[in-house]
Design a protein around this nucleic acid. Structure first.
Length: 106
DNA sequence: CCACTGACGAGTG
DNA sequence: GCACTCGCCAGTG
C-alpha cells in the first residue's frame, strides 16, 4: 500500500468538517497528526485541484478570517458566499465568530 | 543539491 | 492593534 501522503491526511480531516461549521488551519494540522504545521495545511489547499470534493471553503485562519485573497483575487468572496449559504455568519469586520461556528470534534 | 516561495500561527515589542 | 521574526516542509526552477 502506498502510505497516505500528508496532503491526503489533511484532506481527510477537512472532509470531516460538518456543514455550517469551520475549522482553522492549525486545528486541521493538529487533527491530521501534524501539530504546529498550519502552514503545510495552507500549502495542501493551494495544491488542491478545482474538481476535488474537498470542502476547502470551511477552512479559515485562527482569527476567523479568510486567507484565500492572497492567491486568487476575489477568491475570498467565493468562500464567503459558500459559507453563508451553509449558515455561517460573519460579523461587521468580516470575521467569523469562532466561538459559535468552529467545529469541535470529540 | 541549493534558493526561494507560500490558503499559517504563536510569540515579542 | 500593528510590524516583525521564526518554525514548519512540499513543490518549483
Amino acid at each position: 500500500m502506498k502510505p497516505p501522503s500528508r496532503y491526503e491526511r489533511i484532506y481527510a480531516v477537512i472532509r470531516r468538517i460538518p456543514k455550517g461549521r469551520v475549522a482553522t488551519y492549525g486545528q486541521i494540522a493538529d487533527l491530521a497528526g501534524f501539530p504546529d504545521h498550519a502552514r503545510q495545511v495552507g500549502y495542501a489547499l493551494y495544491a488542491l485541484s478545482e474538481h476535488s470534493t474537498v470542502p476547502w471553503h470551511r477552512v479559515v485562519n485562527a482569527q476567523g478570517r479568510l486567507s484565500l485573497g492572497r492567491v486568487i483575487p476575489e477568491g475570498d468572496v467565493e468562500q464567503r458566499i459558500r459559507l453563508e449559504i451553509e449558515g455561517v455568519r460573519f460579523d461587521a469586520d468580516g470575521r467569523i465568530p469562532l466561538g459559535k461556528f468552529q467545529w469541535r470534534p470529540r
